[in-house]
């Protein structure tokens, strides 16, 4: 990966067509965290920084709407996406197992959250980008028991469809959203497909034919053998 600079000043005027002099470094990302903490105080629960790569923050559900507004005022005015995660391990395995032989070791794996932690099964996450400073941030929030969150619609008009999709796929309601109809699925569809406990019926009937793909090759004793390592 190309070396990154820690210089924070990467503002370019709109007509410049060459690459910016400096791409964002960790110093800039720490600055973003500090600025956000100044606004939110201890409602900013956790942050995670992968060096030279990306930034995650987690806030409480109370300030979810406010976080969007604060970040927008700090320059993150480009709305990238909003969606949710179901952290529950899938009760149906990862799809590689034969469903008929599934009930042998049904020790359910423990629920773990990813970067910046989390306490609930569902998390909503969104991403905003600062087009001037060339930096993005992923914001996560725990979804409370009531499965409702405030909408981001007043801040980002683009959140409309994303929140509808999240509602449809996870059953999370966004308070203040005017129109929580289904976006994708026909009206009579039951269940929330992206929840981990939503079964794929076709897989219940027929095992995944691609299982053979991931079986270890018997004659392959040189481990970590790269395929085509000397191509060209």
């Amino acid at each position: 990966m190309a070396p990154l600079s820690d210089t924070t000043d990467a503002t370019t005027d709109a007509s410049a067509d060459d690459a910016p002099a400096a791409l964002p470094g960790d110093g800039l990302r720490e600055g973003i965290v500090d600025a956000l903490r100044a606004e939110l105080g201890d409602q900013l629960l956790d942050t995670h920084l992968v060096p030279q790569t990306d930034l995650w923050v987690r806030v409480t559900a109370e300030v979810w709407q406010q976080t969007g507004a604060v970040l927008k005022s700090q320059g993150f005015d480009y709305f990238c996406f909003l969606s949710a995660i179901d952290w529950m391990p899938s009760p149906y395995g990862d799809g590689e197992d034969d469903p008929s032989a599934a009930d042998e070791d049904d020790e359910p794996a423990e629920m773990t959250s990813g970067y910046t932690g989390g306490d609930t099964r569902f998390q909503v996450f969104a991403r905003l980008t600062d087009l001037r400073r060339h930096v993005g941030v992923t914001i996560k929030v725990d979804v409370p028991e009531s499965m409702t969150l405030d909408t981001w619609l007043p801040t980002f008009a683009g959140a409309n469809w994303h929140e509808r999709e999240t509602h449809e796929m996870f059953g999370i309601t966004f308070e203040g959203h005017p129109d929580m109809r289904n976006l994708y699925l026909p009206g009579e569809f039951e269940g929330y497909p992206l929840r981990k406990d939503f079964p794929l019926l076709a897989r219940m009937i027929k095992p995944w034919p691609g299982i053979v793909d991931v079986e270890p090759m018997p004659a392959d004793d040189t481990d970590d053998d790269a395929e085509g390592g000397d191509g060209s």
């Binding site: 994708y184 569809f189 497909p193 939503f198 794929l200 019926l201 076709a202």
Partner: peptide, 10 residues
């Protein structure tokens, strides 16, 4: 026959 989406819900 459904092709690569043989196991899709939709």
């Amino acid at each position: 026959c459904g092709g690569p989406y043989w196991d899709s819900y939709s």
